[in-house]
Every structure is written in structure tokens, then in C-alpha cells.
Design a protein around this nucleic acid. Sequence first.
DNA 1: TTGTAAGCGTTATCAT
DNA 2: ATGATAACGCTTACAA
Lengths: 337, 337
Amino acid sequence: MNRRVTLADVAELSGVSAITVSRVLNQPEKVSEAVKIKVTAAINKLGYIPNRSASALASARSGVIGVVIPSLSNNVFNDVLRGIYEVTSPAGYQVVLVDTHYSPIEEERMIRTLLGQAPEAMIVTGSNQTEHARKLLAKAQIPIVQIMDKVQEPIDMNVGFCHRKAAMEVVEMLLAEGYNTLGFLGARMDPRAQQRLKGYRLAMEQAELLNEDLVITTPRPSSIAMGCELFKGLISSSGGLCDAVFCVNDDLALGALFECQRMNISVPRQMAICGFNDMEASALVNPPLSSVRVPRYEMGVKATEMVLQTIKGEDVAERVVDCGYEIKMRESTRMVV
Amino acid sequence: MNRRVTLADVAELSGVSAITVSRVLNQPEKVSEAVKIKVTAAINKLGYIPNRSASALASARSGVIGVVIPSLSNNVFNDVLRGIYEVTSPAGYQVVLVDTHYSPIEEERMIRTLLGQAPEAMIVTGSNQTEHARKLLAKAQIPIVQIMDKVQEPIDMNVGFCHRKAAMEVVEMLLAEGYNTLGFLGARMDPRAQQRLKGYRLAMEQAELLNEDLVITTPRPSSIAMGCELFKGLISSSGGLCDAVFCVNDDLALGALFECQRMNISVPRQMAICGFNDMEASALVNPPLSSVRVPRYEMGVKATEMVLQTIKGEDVAERVVDCGYEIKMRESTRMVV
DNA sequence: TTGTAAGCGTTATCAT
DNA sequence: ATGATAACGCTTACAA
């Protein structure tokens, strides 16, 4: 049988000890040039690939970073992931990714199995872990970054921004622009969506314009189609009085826009639309959709840099980073006089 | 220091041997009820989490499935990934995912590091691996599925469809609908895009309508914005004579559509547009975009089922699966008389 | 610069 | 049903 090639095989073929082969791979500066050449030749000849499990076990370093996201289908996390890989990949770390389907219970289970890989660090989304999951994470004694949200009491480190504040600011800008009957569309209603809704409510209340009939939400998954559906709900629930709508994300906003096009509602003349996340399509549809640009990729990069720094024993200057956001007001919310 | 809890700790606390604890976890049917209860209590009390590396080393089963995709930003792979997780997750397997950035050289490097995890199976995209990468994979002696493409000579198993044939069929349908001056927009031009272009060329040649001036491609990444740009290129390159355009994917098609809206080109009256992949937006824009529905999620599920079956030692009935596609003709390509 | 010996935490094998 | 012992493939600690 084609038994797997091990360090011992390479050692034997090159006439050195196993540890020397290991050094050639991991601390080449400690090995003489001559030996290095011999060993490298043997490695190539045999097609030796080091066994990570053995290495992890012996060195107590798994080379794994655990990443916990709520959804693989939500494109928002693509960009975060890209940022994470951008840093882990050159550093030689592997990512083990799990998807919790927005469920804290599943999340706890997945964190548990992830910890079985003895990850050297974890990047987790948000802060609504179960009490037990938080304990597990804390007990793991590894660097942990909570991303996306600005977290009240971080388990360890945090990179994110305040969704409530962002939403509030958007709504205030829309009101300042002259819209009054401003509806809200929300789907999935995960913690970040909840925060955005809270921001909407606060701003509307402050302006004494809050009308719960204009708040249309569903726990069902968010999608463009859902945006169409919720928008129709808003139209009927508001008796057609709405002059603007703030959507919890760009998918819903696109759905609302496409639905307006079908209903012959002119945007922004009859209906202003604002989204959240600033996905690529938003700036390119007609009219361009206002949205909130969120540094997703950068969050991934930053979070990963923070954990790698900690692993290396370096000090992380800012353990809580507010990465901010940028409100992009475009034609879809420009008051027409 | 808070040393990690091991099997031995649990064994000691529950007054049994380590192997018994291991059995409670992995083969509970072989352990008496009384011992099971004692051990479970100890596990919970200590918060014991099994070390996967040790387990992998001792059992020669890593519980890891390696997944190689060309791009994390391409939403097409989200759905495939979702399908993969749908199967691996309940089966207790972890996914280690790598992104090759569409580069066979990077791919070879990533496959090598992935193999270091001693994955029990691999799912890789397409067939343009380097010769060496193919050798590495073959030598690994694990089940391997190549997905997305229909592969000429599979390394092991294959789930995909023929992109050339799909494109050819689409173009034939468009010609049958009455369009003649049919352009092509392509970006990235990875192997699947190349196949689609080939299909376009074949169909156009067959109809004696091929005009290379109408083929606009770029090696740069695909995006909606790129669709806008390429479409403008087509308009100028064709002297405004095009009556239809087949885009290598839906991002480009959306870009073309949005650009038409801005240029006041009526779709489909003055310009028919057809995409590929049938992403969610395509059916919801105005007019709805024709596209080719591809069973991405299903491919992920199927490929994973095939490898898990093989791991279990079961026979896989069909080692090469053509998962097909479905051409969705919508209003964007409906000939108006 | 190189090597020896021990051990990482688990499971396979063989006993009892 | 339970346990003793020896791997698994690598790295750490120490020695030469």
C-alpha cells in the first residue's frame, strides 16, 4: 500500500535525523546549507507533505483560525472573509469556517466543535452568543475578535461599528432632506438589523414622526424578492402615504426599487429609497441607491491582524476598534422640488 | 496555568481509563449505562473538548474536507459552499476552504497545504489544475470531486455541466428568436467563461453570423461595473448595430441592463440581454433578465454526498454526474414585433 | 550544527 | 464491558 510519506522517510533517505528535517522546514536558518540541499531533494523526491495534526499536537500550535459567521448566503460576509484570508493566507494559517444560520444555539455547538481544532484564535460575529458559548470562548485562552457590531462587553477584542447610530444618522439625514412619512423595511431581524431598527425608531421618535404602521419587518431571510414583498406591504399599510423608505439592507432596497419600477412609482420623486451596506449594485442601478458604506473587507483584515499580533505575543494597541461607516447619499433620496 | 482539559483528566475524575472515556464519546453503545453517566458528568464538569489533532493522528481520520474554490468574492461559490456545508455539518466534518484567486499556481500551493491537513476528501473547482497539482491529488488516495465543469478526464469524480453546450444552446435560442447581431461580453475569462465563449462562437459560426468585433472580453475581474464598461465598448465597437448581447454572467448582464437604462436603450426592443447563472436579481430587475439557471447548491450537496459515501466505503453509483442547467428565457430577450 | 529521548492527546490492538 | 500498551508523526528540551 501507498503508505503516507513521513518525516522519518525523508530523514532516512537524506541520511539525517528526523528533527533535522523538521528544522529544514521550520527553522532553516539553523541548518547548514549542505544538509538543507540534501533534505530538500529528499522531500521533493518523496513528495513529502508534513502532517499538520502531528505538528499541531507536538507543538501545541494548530495553525488554525476559527471563523464563525451567521450565514454563508449573505454576501456581506464574503467581503469580510476575503479580508480574513488576505491576512491568514500569507501567514500560513488555515481558516476553519462555520455557519450558524443566525442561531445562537447552533453557534454554541459550532464553537464547541471549532475549539476541538484547538484554533489559535477565533473571529466571531457579533455579541449574541449564549452565555455558555462566551464561557467556552473565554476559557479557550486564545485571542478572540468579535466583528461587525460594536460590542458592549467584548469577550476579548472587537472591530465593528454602531448599527444603531448609523441608522439613526441616516434617518436624520432623510428627515433633513424633507421626507416625513418614512417607512422601515426589515427582514431576518438579526441583532444588527434590530439595532438599525432601533436607530430608525429613535430618530423618528425624536422628530415626533414615529408611526409603527410604517415599520414592516419579518423574521424570514432577507432577499431582493423579500424587498419587493415588504414594500408592497408598506404601500398597503401606509395607504400609499409613504414618501420614503429606509431598508435594513441593500437587498431589500433593491427589491423596493424594482417594485417601484413595476408599480410606476417614480424614485425619488414619489418614493425615496435608502439601503444599508452599499453592495456593488446599489451605486449602479437607476436611480443610484443611497446606502451606508461599511468597511467589510477592512474589518476582516483588521480583526485578523489583531489576532495574529496577539498570537505573536505583540501588544495590540487598540483592542476595541470602531471602524465607522460612510453614508452615501445618492439620487434615490434626493428631494425633488 | 489553565492547562487544557484532556481525556486523562476526565478519566481520572470519573475513575475509569482513558480509552473508556474515548468510547463514551465515539462508540457509546460499547459502554455500560452506569459508566456512561459518570463519564458524561465528568466531561461536563470539566468542560472537556476532544482534541481533533490528537484524534486525527491516532485514528488517521482528520474529519476534514478540503474545498478549493477560485474566488471568495464570486457569489456563485456561496451557493455551492452552502450545499457543501449542508452535508458536512450534520456529518461532523469540518470544511477547510481555500481561495486560489483563479491561479493554477496558487491552487497548487494551496492544495499542498490543504493536503497537510490530511483531509479525508477534497472538492475542487474545475479541471485546470497544474500537472503537479493533479499528481498530488491523485497520490493522496482520497475521494476527490471536481465540480462546476464537466471534466474530460476526472481525477476521480465529477459533478458539473458543459458550459460550452449551455452557451451554445442559449445563443441558438436567441438566434431562433430573431436576433442576428448578437454580441458577447466576458470578464475574468476563467476556464468556464472560455467555454461559454467557445459555445457562443460555435453557434454564431454555424449561423454564419460570427463577427469578432462583437466579442468584448477582459481578463479583469467580473463585476456589474465591468458590465457597464464592456457594454459601452460593445456599443462603440459595433457602431450601435447590435440587437442583442450574451453576457458570460449575470453581473455583466446587470451592468449592461443598467447602462441601457442610462443610455435610453430600450430592453428588449432595441437591445436584448441574456446573462448566465441566474442569480437572484436577474429575475427581479425590469425587464427580467434571461439567464441560465445552474444548480449550484445542488452541486455542492451532490459532490459532498459522493465523497462522504466513498469515505464510508460505499459505492458511488454515478462517479460522473452531469447536473445540467436550465435556460430561463425572460422578457429581456423577447422579440418585440 | 546535529542528534537523542520524551511526550503531545488520542485511538487501535489485544487482553482480561 | 473495560483496560494496558503501543502507536500516530511531529516538536521540545536537552545533549553532544
